[in-house]
Design a protein around this nucleic acid. Structure first.
Length: 869
RNA sequence: GCCCGGAUGGCGGAAUUGGUAGACGCGUCAGACUCAAAAUCUGGUAUUCGCAAGGAUGUGCAGGUUCGAUUCCUGUUCCGGGCACCA
């Protein structure tokens, strides 16, 4: 009896499906375990072998936990809204809903063959109205909430209204944009005035702001979607632009997002990425009075108040509001010119060039501690959006300040003695202060609190915490996203009533941008007639809460019943790539905290443990073709009958090649080849599926492309060897490997185990199909412990020996440990060793083999089921 | 520039807490079975000296701590990832 994996796998997959084996209930006496994958964006390209890596790992873990007696929630769904589907629609004229549906069915077909234990009855799709109804609903909750910094939580805006009506502003919200007012004043405000104030505190708000605008995509992008001045998707240039935009006030959660990071089981690298993104810094704000007008103050932010006596100049951002007041008549022209110059430069240019530019304002401020006159400069290296948009420059301690001082010949004060060598700034905190008035002789780090106390005592400053993180841009001028449940009337945003949700995305005929930077929905008269918001939500809206919907996917009353979310609680294990470190993961953490604050769920962090699977890179193969110069007809011939060199010859000199290949050329191209010169050797991507290891399958290559049909190959030792390189896996590089082909050839169980055997899940590694035979051999060996091709059944019900039990128990222990700590590659090795050992013992005892099948089940579920008697 | 991670045979990788480096698999070599091939099985396979027994060297590089270091410390090179005028 043979191991016919194709029949076995089909049989069990059908049975799992028809018997609803993996459907999970929300009521169980078993302990729960929630194992989640980052759901995929269903792209048109389909799956390559890199995609299922994380799914296989999570499936192993889910099956393992099930065997350990847990009620396991292991769902899958689709993150279906987003830019690529819309771009695709624009290019091919297929409606995103249609292409998305097709892509989803492709994905599903591919996934099903690998034998996952997903509970498909809980599938979610963010682009379906039954799902985005609740995305819109949560948006409304955000819109209708404010952040109470005293209670350190979000609260309904109705509560704030009551407070405003009874006590006025009264410091209830610490937001600079909101002016002080009394209860009586509040009541006297017009509706518009009141609503404008409320808009300044809503957790989802609409405002004017500088945004990342991508002209090619016709939309704004969030900070994490911009990479070095280019869009993450498509790589188009991105510029800063002032636009009306929706935002999430994620900055209110900055501190909590940072703090609760501590208790999460994320990798240190991940924690660090997130905390760098949040970018908390402790410092102080400080006032410097104008020399000419002591009533006016310039407020700066610094993290080093201890260096106050080393301040040699001030720098304000080019957008700073005090520039007109600071500019002296004699410098006005230069200042105007400089500001015009800065405006003319794109973000991209600023980042690429990084040159030192600046301009003196002509005026001075006074150091509050020693009265020293300090010149005020303008420079683009100071950012308007951070701190106060103005800094005190200490060139002996800060590299940028130092370079600036050098460049403009500003004298440098040394307050750190020999720690400053005059050639480089030194940002140490461990120097003893000199030239520093009342701080002389003090250690710098000790001086920080001393100065802070003095600032407060004199009323000229205070300690201050700043964050790099900005509020998240939450609107896109695109079609394929959730519509905002907002109606505009007289410049006031009114939320739709909950009972009118979902606000369905209408069909459109064209996806072109609307007027004035608005989205395609602005072209629809039926939409604009109702004054509906024409922007749509960004890709990360649905993914910020989808994990909650899996818990209660068919509920039409609420997004997720409290009963369901109380039962399932946090995701016990979340698997996905690092690329979402500062996007999705941060947003979903914020939404979870918000929903917790408002009492809709009972936990404030979504994911207990996060594992980042590494990327599987493509291993590209190249063929090296010789390029020639000669008569036109010869070049034509060279195209029809190309000559390829094996990898070892590619780097020979052209002289050498011309000499050694003469006869080859003559043979291939005939007499005319005498006049031909080889001028270069070019490398062309070859489909990896035509290559075995590094050796090219020549006949397959010839039939791959018609133009290679008559190709000639210059071999080494009778083989044509390809060049290799590790690159990102992509269709255009012909280095993708389709899991379907491997499943057909070796079976899903082999494929699953091989993906795990390749190396640690967290590690990035190039794909190499070569070793899959070894894993396949293992499964066949396992099969032979039960069945012999000729003799048939060989397993017996005899009692096992001591030695056999020993082998089994060693395996069970190792598998438990390895599966728990996510070391699946060593677990697969252990299984191989076990089967080898049992083979050596000629062990065919049922009681041993059955136990072996149990520990094998998570890794190779089909064969385990089949052999289970 | 700053921060984080990594470097082990021909290849992917193992060594969980400082204790026999190279598990397991690939590849390769030899053998068995076969008319032959495939499949399967058995054995060898870090480098080096040696007919052999055996010896020497060996975890990017240079040092250090230790009875003992792939593992800890210092410095350094290369590779990968993240951030990048955040005062």
């Amino acid at each position: 009896m043979e191991y016919s994996f194709n029949d076995i796998e089909r049989k069990w997959q059908e049975r799992w499906k028809s018997d609803h084996v993996y459907q999970v209930s929300n009521t169980s006496t078993k302990p729960k375990c929630y194992v989640l994958d980052m759901f995929p964006y269903p792209s048109g390209a389909g799956l390559h072998v890199g995609h299922p890596l994380g799914y296989i790992a999570s499936d192993i873990f889910a099956r393992y936990k099930r065997l350990k007696g847990f009620n396991v929630l292991h769902p899958m769904g689709y993150d279906a809204f987003g830019l690529p589907a819309e771009q695709y629609a624009i290019e091919r004229g297929i409606h995103p809903a249609v292409s998305t549906k097709q892509n989803i069915s492709n994905f599903r077909e591919q996934l099903d063959r690998i034998g996952f234990s997903f509970d498909w009855s809980r599938q979610v799709n963010t682009a379906e109205p039954s799902f985005y109804k609740w995305t819109q609903w949560i948006f409304l909750q955000l819109f209708n909430s404010w952040y109470d910094r005293n209670a350190n939580q979000a609260r309904p805006i109705t509560e704030l209204l009551t407070l405003f009506e009874s006590q006025g502003y009264n410091g209830l919200v610490t937001n600079r944009q909101v002016p002080d007012f009394t209860a009586a004043e509040w009541k006297s405000f017009s509706e518009k005035q009141q609503q404008d104030i409320l808009m300044e505190v809503r957790l989802a708000y609409c405002g004017f702001g500088e945004v990342n605008w991508c002209e090619a995509l016709g939309t704004v992008l969030a900070n994490d979607e911009v990479i070095n001045g280019f869009s993450e998707r498509g790589g188009h240039p991105v510029i800063k632009k002032k636009l009306r935009q929706w935002y999430l006030r994620i900055t209110e959660y900055a501190d909590r997002l940072l703090e609760s990071l501590q208790k999460l089981s994320f990798s240190d690298a991940m924690k660090e990425m997130q905390s760098n993104w949040i970018g908390k810094s402790f410092g102080a704000e400080m006032d410097f009075a104008f020399e000419k007008d002591p009533g006016k103050k310039l407020r700066v932010y610094t993290t080093r108040p201890d260096t106050i006596f080393g301040v040699d100049f001030m720098v304000v951002a080019p957008e700073h509001e005090m520039i007109p007041a600071l500019t002296s008549p004699s410098e006005k022209k230069a200042v105007d010119q400089y500001i015009a110059y800065v405006k003319s430069r794109s973000e991209r240019e600023r980042m690429a060039e990084k040159k030192i530019t600046g301009c003196f304002t002509g005026s001075y401020v006074l150091n509050p501690f020693n009265g020293r006159k300090i010149p005020v400069w303008i420079s683009e290296y100071v950012l308007a959006g951070y701190g106060t948009g103005a800094i005190m420059a200490v060139p002996c301690g800060d590299e940028r300040d130092f370079k600036f001082a050098r460049f403009f010949n500003i004298p440098i004060t040394n307050i750190i003695g020999q720690h400053f060598n005059g050639e480089d700034a030194n940002s140490t905190k461990d120097a003893i202060l000199e030239n520093s008035g009342f701080l002389n002789g003090m250690l710098m780090r000790d001086a920080i609190p001393v100065v802070n106390a003095k600032l407060e005592e004199l009323g000229i400053g205070n300690p201050r915490v700043n964050y790099k993180m900005r509020d998240a841009a939450f609107s896109r001028q695109r079609y394929w996203g959730e519509p905002f449940p907002i109606v505009w009337k007289n410049g006031i945003a009114y939320p739709l009533d909950e009972k009118d949700l979902p606000l369905e995305l209408p069909k459109v005929d064209s996806y072109k941008a609307g007027p004035d930077g608005e989205g395609p929905l602005a072209n629809l008269s039926e939409w604009t007639a109702k004054h509906l918001e024409t922007n749509t939500m960004p890709g990360y809206a649905g993914s910020s809460w989808y994990f909650l919907r899996y818990m209660d996917p068919h509920n039409s009353e609420v997004f997720c019943s409290r009963k369901a979310s109380d039962y399932w609680g946090q995701v016990d294990l979340y698997i996905g790539g690092t690329e979402h470190a500062v996007g999705h993961l941060l947003y979903s953490r914020m939404w979870t905290k918000f929903l917790f604050d408002r009492g809709f769920i009972g936990f404030d962090e979504p994911y207990k443990r996060l594992v980042n699977q590494g990327m599987i890179q493509g291993s590209s193969r190249f063929a090296h073709r010789i390029e020639i110069s000669g008569a036109d007809e010869m070049e034509m011939l060279a195209k029809q009958k190309p000559i390829f060199l094996s990898a070892g010859m590619k780097n020979r000199s052209l002289d050498e090649l011309n000499a050694s290949l003469k006869s080859v050329l003559l043979e291939q191209w005939g007499k005319g080849a005498e006049r031909v010169q080889i001028i270069s050797v070019s490398s062309l991507h070859v489909d990896v599926n035509l290559v075995n290891g590094a050796e090219l399958d020549i006949s397959a290559f010839r039939s791959w492309r018609p133009e290679y049909g008559q190709a000639h190959f210059v071999m080494e030792n009778g083989k044509y060897i390809c060049g290799t390189e590790v690159e990102k896996m992509s269709k255009s590089k012909f280095n993708t490997v389709n899991p379907n082909e491997l499943v057909d050839k070796y079976g899903a169980d082999t494929f699953r185990m091989y993906e795990m055997f390749l190396g640690p899940v967290e590690q990035s590694k190039p794909w190499d199909t070569k070793g899959i035979e070894g894993v396949h051999r293992f499964l066949r060996k396992l099969w032979r412990l039960f069945f012999d091709e000729i003799k048939g059944k060989v397993w017996t019900a005899d009692a096992a020996t001591e030695a056999e039990w020993k082998v089994l128990h060693k395996a069970i222990k190792k598998l438990d440990e390895d599966t728990d700590r996510f070391s699946f590659n060593t677990a697969v090795s252990a299984l191989m060793i076990t089967v080898n050992e049992l083979g050596e013992l000629k062990s065919h005892k049922k009681e041993i083999l059955e136990n072996l099948l149990i520990i094998l089940t998570p890794y190779a579920p089909h064969i385990s089921e089949e052999l289970w008697h």
